[in-house]
Design a protein around this nucleic acid. Structure first.
Lengths: 142, 142
DNA sequence: CCTGTATCTACAGTCGCTGTAGAATAGGGG
DNA sequence: CCCCTATTCTACAGCGACTGTAGATACAGG
């Protein structure tokens, strides 16, 4: 039986994060000692490792919830799992595209500035006037 | 004199966002009508356009605050402006690198899965065991 | 003057945690 | 068995950058 701190160390998670996962229902309510402290078994350790690894790959907690639900039905087709992963991949790709447009614009902006006075700084001019931009970087999300 | 809704439309900003910017002190408190409604002039329009464009390029509100302060000292060297933009560029590049590692891992994961049963789904196996991963995608930030 | 749209304030909610305060518990050494 | 320290407990506030809501008030056109 593992205390919450041990579970945290083993999975590279903060203790509060584990309690947060319990609060939002993505981790189960574990057994408790007489004094009220949480005690975990191997199933919970595995589940938490799954969650953390999925988070590292950028899956949202909602997506992870779906994945966990699906993995409880071993006989089912894994088409849905596939769909969730595809969605995540497309999301990551969209973000890369957007960030690459930003990178190009920032790069150009910086290259044009010869470190003069603020009064005629190209960087500030570009920021003032979107029309100065070449690429289509306007889309929301940072 | 522009009402807040007009300012919002002209800059592609939500009305609440403008009020939020005022609350955090990045937009000035504008004049008011007798009835208490905000009225804006061209200076505020320009300032908001600057903020929105900078946000589109991924600058944080704190960075934008610095940029706005700097642009009020036209005689100064623009080295600091340059530094802020460089920092932003490096940040964007770091995020791209990280997302590309995620993309590779997701891609590999999906490719390995031949849409079988959940029980032997490669995607779920990889998520369960970080050891299955090739690249070093563990780093925080989504 | 009336009506409908816009604006006002104040506050809660988003996502995924992180940090804090103050109290209670667990486990090891003496 | 007692004590001490590290750990855990609950409850709540805060982050960044907004977004949405409710209920009241103001403004502009006909």
């Amino acid at each position: 039986m593992l205390a919450i701190g041990t579970l945290a160390k083993r999975t590279g998670t903060k203790v509060q994060t584990i309690r947060y996962y319990e609060e939002i229902g993505i981790m189960p309510e574990p057994g408790r000692t007489e004094g009220g402290q949480r005690r975990y078994g191997d199933a919970e350790l595995d589940r938490l490792a799954f969650i953390r690894h999925s988070r590292q790959l950028g899956f949202s907690l909602d997506a992870i919830r779906e994945l966990l639900d699906l993995s409880d039905s071993p006989g089912r087709s894994c088409a849905e799992v596939d769909a969730i992963a595809q969605r995540q991949l497309r999301d990551v790709e969209a973000r890369i595209d957007r960030l690459e447009a930003l990178r190009a614009e920032l790069h150009r902006m910086i290259a044009e500035c010869g470190s003069n006075r603020v009064a005629d700084c190209r960087i500030l001019q570009v920021l003032r006037d979107h029309g100065e931009c070449l690429s289509d970087h306007a889309k929301a999300e940072t």
